[in-house]
Nucleic acid binder design. Structure first.
Length: 735
DNA sequence: CGGATTTAACTTTTT
DNA sequence: GTTAAATCCG
């Protein structure tokens, strides 16, 4: 940074007021990251505040990383700043002080599926009737209780019946088991950190002395636990700057408390309130359209964004017949824009409300040979083989982790089945020790068959060997050792060829992730590795430099921006989602989500809906989304024809060896016949289409492969059975 | 006891 | 359409 000249008046005010509480109400695209990064640089450069005395909390690791880089380029110094997510900051604090709370510092972090597994087994063990409390329910109640810093004993305040009795039982056993396993879940990281600071004035004093300047990004999405943490930490110096936008609050369902931002002025009297209303991202059309939607919300502070950017194209709206056509429309539109406007694939993003919608779009992109990257959905670290491997690593780090122990004790198959396991569990209960230790006791007591004895002692030897090795070798070496000695690839992964290859590919990717991690200048221990990967999220790995179309849910889109945005599935029941269409508070949150999506677009915005859509097998006919109708007509234009067919695109290999798809400018474009959407007898056959063949008669399409001239089609004919045909020669007629 | 296959259930968003 | 549970079979 050379000066504050790059900032507008309002931004400058927010940066310069370094003392006391500051609330920055920052609209979408108004430069809030800029404010935070310049503020950090300003503190350092003009006031000599040391980096270690500043902490900035972000919502995702990606935002944190980006912020670190920007601060680094502003200040030119390589010192490490405390810029990271709530969860990782809490994890770091807890690693240091968790003994005060009765944990060992090698505690492991459970993700939500671990959480659910554990709750399931507790509900089973306690004999709780699933009609009263399902594991899903218990999980969400426990999570929200923790986010409100409520212990099991605090729950009676809310419920006072049989249900809450059961919930309290499950919750308290759950906490006991976590403690016994020396494990914490996501919510515990916040709750225990708050607990630690509240009950240990000297520790609180240490951190509030250390972090004299605190900044919080996306303040509208903080929950009560996070709010308390911030209050505690800032109580001494009160140099707290929060940045947020009530219109972009989309995590109420996860415990985010919008009153945190709405009441900030009351909580922190004498605060400076700065409003950033100039948008630097989008065209006038996009911004006004987004404003016309968000204005329908009643509970908002109210602000109106403006921009000096150009008018831009109108928003385009297209209604398609089916989700397949929707995907195809998007693909063709992307091709057309690549060709006519010389855009690159990484200019495009496709947003959807639910992960399930991504499949069809992916299929279409693959069919059209367009590279894409997808975020979210099944998380990489949620895959079976990865979780198995991680469970091994966790047990090596912390043998008391019963959940992971149970997962791997019989993977690969060692003949330690349910019968043996339940005996081990009994001993564990009797002596109140972990399963690992109970296994050792079991062996010593020697009341088991020779076969189980050898396999169990083999298993313990294996783990013990890893534990000893761990001191001497790197995490990647340990990973490979585990795979090798368990003969995981040979024993566990099925023989189905495609599946097998995919899984082995995943394991390779995992190893390269480990190697990547080891390159970092910070701590590279097993402990640090496991912590890092349990807190990493889908968006974190987004790389805007790859030439690929980006697919993600609207939630994941927050904080990002793209030249061209497609929002698909703009239908009642899907968006707003039918589970959020009853209460007006919920609809308002969906509307904010729509606003977030729209304001990601810089230049072009496309909205699509369909007449019919297959959702989990069943075909449904949805009305168009109310959000579509809320956009004033003056900003929107209805697309009635298919995009021009582009025949002149080629896959090319670039020097960086990334597969790059872009228009081949040496050839002209062929105009395809102008198909209107209502004319959907369409040239276009897909699985399920009914066809008529001149010789074979009536049939149903099973599958199509390839594109254009080379398209192959598999059809099941009523009279002659399944045939594979070349579309070009088959003379099929759609019926 | 373990593996493979079939059946049934359940469908939001995620740190 | 996917995944987990249930059932069957060796």
């Amino acid at each position: 940074m050379e000066s504050l000249k790059d900032l507008n008046e309002m931004q400058k005010r927010a940066v310069e007021q370094i003392n006391g509480p500051v609330l920055v109400l920052a609209g979408a695209g108004s430069g809030k990251t800029r404010v935070i990064t310049y503020r950090i640089a300003h503190l350092k450069k003009n006031y000599g505040i040391l980096p270690e005395n500043v902490v900035a909390v972000t919502f995702t690791n990606k935002a944190a990383k980006e912020m670190k880089e920007r601060v680094l380029s502003l200040t030119g110094s390589g010192q490490i700043h405390w810029i990271s997510t709530f969860h990782s900051i809490c994890a770091k604090v807890l690693r240091k002080h968790c003994q005060m709370l009765g944990f060992e510092n090698n505690f492991v972090i459970y993700d939500s599926s671990d959480q659910l597994n554990m709750i399931k087994s507790i509900i089973e063990d306690l004999g709780v009737d699933e009609r009263v409390l399902t594991p899903d329910n218990a999980q969400s109640y426990i999570s929200s209780a923790k986010n409100q810093l409520k212990k099991p004993s605090d729950i009676n305040e809310v419920f006072n019946d049989y249900f809450s009795e059961q919930l309290i039982r499950v919750y308290s056993v759950y906490q006991k088991r976590l403690r016994k396993n020396n494990a914490m879940d996501f919510d515990d990281l916040l709750m225990h950190a708050a607990e630690l600071l509240k009950s240990n004035p000297d520790i609180l004093n240490y951190y509030s002395e250390k972090w004299q300047y605190i900044m919080v990004d996306e303040y509208q999405d903080t929950n009560h636990a996070q709010y308390q943490l911030i209050r505690l930490l800032s109580s001494k110096h009160k140099n707290l700057c929060v940045v947020g936008d009530d219109d972009q609050s989309i995590y109420r369902w996860r415990g985010a408390d919008i009153t945190n931002i709405l009441n900030f002025e009351k909580d922190f009297p004498d605060c400076l309130v700065v409003r950033l209303e100039q948008n630097y991202r989008s065209t006038k059309n996009i911004l006004r359209a987004a404003n016309s939607v968000i204005e329908k919300n009643l509970s908002r502070k109210g602000k109106s964004l403006w921009t000096e950017n150009i008018e831009g194209e109108k928003i385009h709206h297209a209604t398609l017949n089916s989700e397949v056509e929707e995907g195809l429309y998007i693909c063709r539109k992307i091709k057309e824009l690549c060709f006519n406007e010389k855009r690159r694939l990484n200019d495009f993003a496709i947003f959807y409300r639910t992960n399930a919608q991504s499949r069809v779009i992916e299929d279409m992109l693959r069919r059209e040979n367009m590279p894409y990257d997808i975020f979210g959905g099944v998380r990489f670290y949620d895959r079976k083989e990865i979780k198995d491997l991680l469970a091994y690593m966790r047990v090596v780090l912390n043998p008391d982790d019963d959940l992971s122990f149970e997962r791997i004790v019989n993977i690969p198959n060692r003949g330690i089945g349910e019968a043996t396991l339940s005996k081990i569990k009994k001993i564990a209960e009797r002596d109140s020790i972990s399963l690992y230790k109970a296994s050792e006791v079991f062996l010593k007591e020697g009341k088991l068959s020779l076969k189980t004895e050898t396999s169990l002692s083999e298993f313990l030897k294996l783990i013990c060997g890893f534990i000893n090795l761990q001191q001497r070798i790197s995490v990647s070496e340990l990973t490979e050792k585990i795979l090798e000695e368990t003969r995981y690839a040979e024993e566990v992964i099925g023989k189905n060829k495609e599946e097998r290859e995919g899984r082995i590919e995943n394991l390779r990717e995992f190893i390269s992730a480990v190697e990547e991690f080891e390159k970092s200048p910070e701590e590279t221990s097993l402990k640090a590795f496991l912590e890092q990967i349990s807190l990493i999220t889908a968006v974190d790995k987004y790389d805007e430099n790859l030439e690929r179309v980006t697919l993600m849910t609207l939630h994941n889109a927050k904080g990002l921006e793209f030249q061209v945005v497609f929002m698909c599935g703009m239908e009642e029941g899907l968006f707003p989602h039918f589970l959020s269409s009853n209460e007006s508070l919920e609809v308002e949150e969906e509307r904010r989500l729509c606003y977030v999506g729209m304001t990601r677009a810089k230049e072009r915005l496309f909205l699509t809906n369909t007449y019919r859509r297959k959702i989990y097998g069943a075909e449904r006919m949805n009305l168009s989304s109310r959000f579509l109708r809320e956009i004033s007509d003056e900003f929107i234009e209805v697309d009635r024809g298919w995009p021009e067919e582009q025949n002149s695109f080629d896959m090319k290999m670039e020097e960086n060896s990334h597969r790059v798809w872009r228009p081949d400018a040496t050839r002209g474009s062929d105009r395809s016949p102008d198909l209107s959407f209502s004319d959907k007898s369409d040239s276009f056959l897909r699985a399920g289409s009914k066809v008529l063949h001149p010789f074979f008669g009536k049939g149903t399409v099973l599958e199509t492969k390839g594109t254009g001239e080379n398209q192959k089609i598999t059809v099941s004919f009523i009279n002659v059975g399944v045939k594979k045909l070349s579309l070009k020669h088959a003379n099929l007629e759609k019926i």
